[in-house]
Amino acid sequence: MTMPQDLPEVISVFPLPGALLLPRSRLPLHIFEPRYLTMLEDALKTPERLIGMVQPFEAPDGSDTLMTIGCAGRVTQFSETEDGRYMITLTGISRFRIVEEVEGFTPYRRAQVNWDGFDRDRAGKDRDPTFDRSRFMDLLHRFFAAKGFDTDWDTLKEADDELLINSLSMLLEFDPEDKQALLEAPSLATRRETLITLIEYALHGGNGDDLIQ
């Protein structure tokens, strides 16, 4: 298990609305803005190769700020295109809590972070012993049919619980604050409960109408 003392106190942060990274999950990203190309190049020079994914939001005073909790991913794959862009994959390592943003000369944002309280992220696969998979798959069938989505149902059925719940949490389109709720769920079971609530709300049309059949 990776210990907090093995992780850096300051990391680069990538504020990307609606993008969710979870521990042990993989997030593909297309990097093309000059400041984030610099961020990637700097991350690749470090032994940890970490980039922190975090949700931005507009504060009441109009300033562009960051959610307190994000998730750091290690760059595990990357390839460069002919025109200098990068296709990368981040593999989620651990969530973190932002202590404060760090001023400096980098064109991208950095933050001092605290890794305490997220030991579960670094302890191996999470379990959900009360998961009613059959009932969940029925709900998912209804949701995909209502939205006109298509998927490889055989692959979904074969995925283990953590991979299934985390992949859906990352891939389905929810509002940034809903993505943040999925990120901050303290366990796989609470994330699954949050995901079910969001799917059921979407099936209601978000306004309390009868479920779409």
Rank of each mutant, 00 (worst) to 15 (best):
E80R: 13
E80M: 07
E80V: 13
E80Y: 00
E80D: 00
T81N: 01
E82V: 12
E82R: 06
E82F: 01
E82I: 01
G84D: 02
G84Q: 05
R85F: 04
R85I: 04
M87R: 09
I88H: 08
I88G: 03
T89Q: 11
T89E: 04
T89H: 02
T89A: 13
L90I: 10
L90Y: 01
L90K: 04
T91R: 07
T91N: 09
T91S: 06
G92M: 05
G92V: 06
G92D: 03
G92A: 06
G92H: 04
I93F: 03
I93G: 04
I93R: 01
I93A: 02
I93L: 10
S94T: 10
S94Q: 11
S94Y: 06
S94M: 02
S94P: 06
R95A: 01
R95T: 00
R95G: 01
R95Y: 06
F96P: 03
F96D: 04
F96S: 08
I98G: 00
I98S: 00
I98K: 00
V99P: 11
E100I: 07
E100N: 15
E100S: 15
E101I: 06
E101L: 13
V102A: 10
G104M: 05
G104K: 10
G104P: 12
G104R: 13
G104S: 13
G104Q: 07
F105E: 15
F105S: 15
F105V: 15
F105K: 15
T106N: 09
T106Y: 05
P107L: 07
P107T: 11
P107D: 03
Y108K: 04
R109S: 12
R110E: 06
R110L: 08
A111H: 04
A111E: 04
A111M: 11
Q112R: 15
Q112T: 09
Q112W: 02
V113M: 11
N114G: 05
N114V: 06
N114A: 13
W115S: 09
W115K: 11
W115T: 03
D116P: 10
D116T: 01
D116G: 00
D116L: 13
D116M: 08
G117T: 11
G117A: 08
G117S: 09
G117I: 10
G117C: 12
F118T: 10
F118C: 10
F118K: 13
F118G: 10
F118E: 05
D119R: 14
D119M: 05
D119V: 06
D119W: 14
